[in-house]
Design a protein around this nucleic acid. Structure first.
Length: 642
RNA sequence: GCCGAUGUGGCUCAGGGGUAGAGCAGCUCACUCGUAAUGAGCAGGUCGUCGGUUCGAAUCCGACCAUCGGCUCCA
């Protein structure tokens, strides 16, 4: 007999050799039916795994993310089986579980079409009903190589060759289909019920553009049909808050063929932008920052000195002035270096926190452009902090706190990543290690959880990245803190120390919004276009009921304008219902209806965006209400759900 | 840049080898109206661009451009 510790802490005695499924049955039949896999001492295994010694066992069902992942992975195998049946000769890539579903990469002469997806889905449903068992088999390396070589599965052969020597090689078979796979899998295809093939995309084998591009089929898979439907609905809802759609509807910005990746900001978009800039200046001033502006075009020699010419050329735009080479800046730092060097600096001056709302241009590949989230010209809310080595920790923490403060004001949730030294970077390993450790230390001081992104740093230093989600849960890097020992060296930056000698300062590059464009896109999606009052391009729309109320409406407008409220009047000769509807679809936070009743009492009838009920209040009361919301930057949580 | 899809009036979309259609928006007129669409009329497109096939192309073919979904890359 062996002792099995269950999830709830209880210990069960069972005979050695009992399978996990039998264990589940002994607990309850319901659990046995719902079980998809099990976590044995932290490792996820098949249900028919035999328990030979004492262990901690957790039976996984589709109620857990881990159970879902197993099921999704099994669904990927089901797709591969369907593809093999319908398109014989297809060579298999890989097919993992991902958030909400799975994908599988295929190499096929046949180009998959959306119609094929329907056929494949039907075939998958047919196969699922066949109740094929997922059977695991372990092979030696030679057997595995033989098997897949014979079948012409060259990618699988490559994978096997790359497996470490001691790895156990396993294959899984369901019906007529066998795949190389570490597992685990659900017991049978009949557990695969709620899935849908979603899209076809190209994807490089092993994620390298040097390799062949395979055809990737994406699918969704959930525990039950209603979960799948819920998710599909969520996708539909998400489309409604897409910043590209809302940006046009709300007249914030536009994109045109004449300038791919170069957004046009409309008057209302500019209001939003300017508020973000005002807020930024205010908060930075409080924290001891100064602001500069450096040129957009600078000479080739500067970019050679900074290393951009060697490390960033592919992303830069060039021009000639009087036969000399110049480049349009892709980053603000070299300009900041020149500013620093424009006079002698003392240790007493440090840290210098030097901000710049700098417009940068980067040549991004055409296929990556995406609304305001990925553009070719954008404004970074940059700053370069020049400091003594002893100030590093404190300054990094200062920036972390600043970013956290900003994101909280907007109600953004974020996650943090630490990106380390990339290939093709400058500087010594010691410098990189020092810089990376400094960033880590600051993160740990703050107790922030972070994910490490190996090789994802800038060419001059490691960085802490702050990521925010868009409407489809794709994350976008916004804030970043980069520690740089290289630029000060390259530009021979110095300060005069206490000892009267020259010393090398250390530098931080950092942004809070990241880019105004990206941040605005994320704000639009976050609020679904219904901005909190302080950000709203139009805060109030006055709706006179008929012509005879226009005069009073004008008075209300004047009063609000005096208080710097952004207000407009809808004086068209339309019915009040119509005007209200339009104010709502324009997502204006306050619609003020004024008619006879209001005129007599110097009041306004206040209707908030997204609410049905109205409140008649004295004009002065409304002024103080809206002003409070503006000053406190109140977030209207109604805007977050639609 | 790579793979696939898409491109018809300001927007959403129908149509499809014989020189273009709807709804919304816009404009005009009437209605002066109490919390999500008043009615009538008018106007608006060389069907992404350039080539080719054809008696004839918006429709078929090709190239290019842009957009969308991915991949790679990034704020």
């Amino acid at each position: 007999m062996i002792n099995v510790t269950l999830k709830d802490g209880s210990i069960k005695q069972i005979p050695a050799g009992t399978t996990v499924l039998e264990l589940a049955s002994s607990i309850s039949q319901g659990l046995a039916r719902a079980a998809v896999a099990a976590k044995i001492n932290g490792e996820i295994k098949d249900l028919n795994t035999k328990l030979e010694e004492d262990a901690e066992v957790e039976i996984l069902t589709l109620d857990s993310e881990e159970g879902l992942a197993v099921m999704r992975h099994s669904t990927a195998h089901l797709l591969a089986q369907a593809v093999k049946n319908l398109f014989p000769g297809t060579i298999l890539g890989i097919g993992p579980a991902i958030a909400n579903g799975f994908y599988y990469d295929f190499d096929s002469e046949h180009v998959f079409t959306p119609e094929d997806l329907e056929k494949l889905e039907a075939e998958m449903k047919r196969l699922a009903k066949e109740d094929y068992k997922f059977e695991r088999q372990e092979l030696t390396r030679e057997q595995a190589l033989d098997y897949f070589q014979q079948k012409g599965e060259k990618y699988k052969v490559e994978l096997i060759n790359d497996l470490p020597g001691e790895a156990r090689i396993s294959i899984y078979t369901q019906g007529n289909f066998t795949d190389l796979c570490a597992g685990p899998h659900v017991p049978s295809t009949k557990m695969l019920k709620a899935f849908k093939l979603q899209s076809i995309a190209g994807a490089y084998w092993r994620g390298s553009e040097k390799n062949k591009m395979l055809q990737r089929i994406y699918g969704l898979a959930f525990a039950k049909k209603s979960d799948l439907d819920d998710y599909l609905n969520k996708l539909e809802e998400a489309k409604k808050r897409d910043h590209r759609k809302l940006g046009m509807e709300l007249d914030l910005f536009s994109l045109h063929d004449e300038g791919p990746g170069f957004p046009f900001f409309h008057p209302k978009g500019m209001v939003l932008r300017n508020i973000l800039e005002d807020f930024w200046r205010e908060e930075h001033l409080k924290r001891g920052y100064v602001e500069i502006k450096t040129p957009i075009i600078l000479s080739r020699s500067l970019w050679e000195q900074s290393g951009h010419w060697d490390h960033y050329k592919d992303n830069m735009y060039f021009t000639k002035i009087d036969d000399q080479d110049f480049a349009v800046k892709p980053m603000n730092c070299p300009g900041g270096m020149i500013m620093y060097k424009s006079k002698l600096r003392s240790y007493r001056d440090l840290p210098i926190r030097c901000g710049e709302l700098g417009l940068v241009h980067r040549h991004e590949l055409s296929g990556v452009l995406h609304g305001l989230l990925r553009v070719r010209s954008f404004t970074q809310d940059d700053a370069h902090i020049f400091m003594l080595p002893s100030q590093i920790n404190e300054e990094i923490i200062g920036v972390i706190d600043l970013i956290d403060y900003f994101y909280k004001v907007f109600g953004f949730e974020y996650h943090v990543e630490l990106s380390t030294r990339p290939e093709n970077s400058m500087g010594s390993d010691e410098d990189w290690e020092m810089a990376t450790n400094a960033l880590k230390e600051a993160l740990e001081t703050k107790g922030l959880e972070y994910k490490v992104n190996p090789g994802d740093g800038a060419f001059y230093g490691p960085k802490i990245d702050f990521h925010v989600k868009d409407c489809l849960d794709r994350t976008w890097q916004c804030g970043t803190i980069q520690l740089d020992f290289q630029m000060p060296e390259k530009f021979d930056l110095t300060y005069i120390g206490e000892d009267g000698e020259k010393h090398r300062p250390v530098m931080i590059h950092r942004v809070v919004y990241g880019s105004l464009e990206r941040f605005i896109a994320l704000l639009i999606e976050h609020y679904a276009g219904a901005f909190p009052v302080w950000l709203s391009p139009v805060q109030v729309r006055i709706l006179p009921i008929s012509d005879r109320h226009n005069e009073f409406a004008n008075i209300v407008e004047t009063v609000l304008k005096e208080e710097k409220v952004r207000v407009e009047i809808d004086q068209r000769r339309e019915k009040i219902n119509y005007k209200i509807r339009e104010a709502q679809t324009a997502k204006i936070p306050f619609a003020l209806v004024v008619g006879d009743k209001e005129m007599e009492t110097d009041s306004v009838s206040v209707r908030r965006y997204g609410e049905q009920e109205t409140a008649v209040m004295n004009l002065n009361d409304f002024v103080s209400l809206i002003k409070t919301e503006i000053i406190t930057k109140k977030i209207n949580d109604k805007g977050l759900v639609q």
